[in-house]
Amino acid sequence: MSDVIPTLKRDYIYNLMVKGKRLDGRGFEDFRDIKLETNVIAKAEGSAKVTLGKTQVLVGVKLQTGTPFSDSRDEGVIITNLELNPIASPSFEPGPPREEAIEMARVVDRGIRESGAIDIKKLCITEGESVWIAFIDIHVLNDEGNIIDASCLAGIGALMTTMVPNEMAGIGEDAPLEMKEMPVGVTIAKIGEKLMVDPGRYEEAVCETKLTVVSSSDGSVNGMQKIGSASLTEDELLEAIELARKKAEEIREEFLVGLERKD
């Protein structure tokens, strides 16, 4: 996913960070500037674009009717897909999703699903026959690092502004999708012995490993994944979770609380 970084640059970044500095002057617990726009795609039932530094991610939510699974006859279905479009980075290629894309999509999906953000029972139209299927399609437009946090935020932003197209299905008037929780994903990178939030593209390439933690407003953790090839100590893991929960709360307060669909 990351581009090849010449060894010299790698050393420079690494040494800088070991000294307690980051490439762009941020503190270890600082996110880059975040911008969340919603209702950016009129054709989608819900949509959001997140700009995280220069990383850009666009999420569209489409709702369609379908039949439920036989083991959950009264529940709607959530399907999350993430595409690393070749437009977003010289190292992305067209074609079926690679393992990184699948992994990220599944982590975002688990965060939304396990936090209970969507009441899937409410997505049931007729038990055993007809339910809403929510497609959450994540388009990565520009990769400057930490796609996964941008995807989580854009995903939940899009869902919070989604209208259920009841009229189209002939079952009454369109209504906002009911949301019960606002999970936020925060990725912590480990470089040397240090932990830092929201790794940029170069930091991702240099870091030993990353940990993505999705947490919700009651402070509970709903999803987690170590992404990357090095190990973490138990203390680092617990510290990272603590830090991620704190940052998630800040992001939730600033961007999601009170977010409504404005037509």
Binding site: E114, N222, K226, S231, T233, E234
Partner: peptide, 26 residues
């Protein structure tokens, strides 16, 4: 997943856990 030195090499999680429960679980 971990090594015998306690280095954690795999972490995945889904569900609903508090920080305290995570500590006890570990």
């Amino acid at each position: 997943a971990m090594t015998q030195d306690g280095e954690i090499t795999l972490v995945q999680m889904d569900g609903h856990l508090t920080q305290d429960e995570i500590k006890r679980g570990l």
